[in-house]
Amino acid sequence: MEIKTITSANIPVFFNNLVKSGKVVVAPVLKKSGKVFFESVQSYDQVSTDYIQTAFSAKSVVFPEVEELFSYTKKEDGDFEFRNDMSNVPETVIWGLRPCDSSAFNYLTDFFLKENPDTYFKLRKERTTLISVSCAKADAACFCTSVGLNPGNVTGSDILLTAMGDSYYVEISTEKGKSVIDTALFTDSTEKSKEEFLAKVETKFSMDEIRERIQTAYDSAEWKHESMGCLGCGACAFSCPTCTCFDIQDEGSQESGKRLRCWDACGFGQFTRHASGHNPKSNQTARRRQRLMHKFKYSVENFGIVSCVGCGRCIRVCPAHLNIFENILNVTKA
């Protein structure tokens, strides 16, 4: 870990230098709809600085909505040719993601690379640098402190910036982070603590309390009531920084086309449906339970990480405003 400072005035210079270096820079941009999205930008003027959380996470940089697995062509003799060219995946910098999102990248990396490493994710991740910005503000949907994170944690980030008045506290965690630092703009840090500049995020529950009770939560009678409002859309899964389910679909003809990997959501009724018509998770209660149990129990068992990072997006985006922390509290009630 290396600690430095940069003046606020120099932030745009640093940012624009990143763009000039030929990297694709993805940063939060405020849209007319009032929502903030990650988008490829050309200059710091376009970047939104006043947002609590982006509407969607930045996972699409390393795990795009639609990823071309390969393209195929049928040759005249009936044989196929499969092509997969990833060489044009650009070096990308994600700027301004929140500490919860960057720690989500940690989970994604474990999930995709630990067992049966995923070629596509691997390449995209290698070419991605994360420059996070700590949260100075939080809202009622934020609950990172409940899942063991905080508004200033460095987990997952290559560089974490924390605004401290007219300067930024810069924590550089990785070699990749070091390599994008423009030394002229950064000076060694004066020993201030960043704590006072971080948002205060209310703790909704403590993982310690829940860890034990979640073991038996599968059988809780509360699931039905807790998921009554769920309408079975994919908004929560698609906005979630750690949801990784996908579908594989072919587009094109039998002569030529592409095989695509597209985001899918465990909330969809068709998600688990067998060809026979049998559906192991036949109702929305079971599907909602799968989603929550996966975040808080299964991923802990499989990877040792709670895969909910408390970003609160699913709460903000849900048409029925289902509240994940309320749900989890209620199903683990003694």
Binding site: F56, L231, C233, G234, A235, F238, C262, A265, P319
Partner: peptide
């Protein structure tokens, strides 16, 4: 993003 929330609601 084809989340089908429009259909769901």
């Amino acid at each position: 993003i084809k989340c089908y929330a429009c259909r769901a609601v």
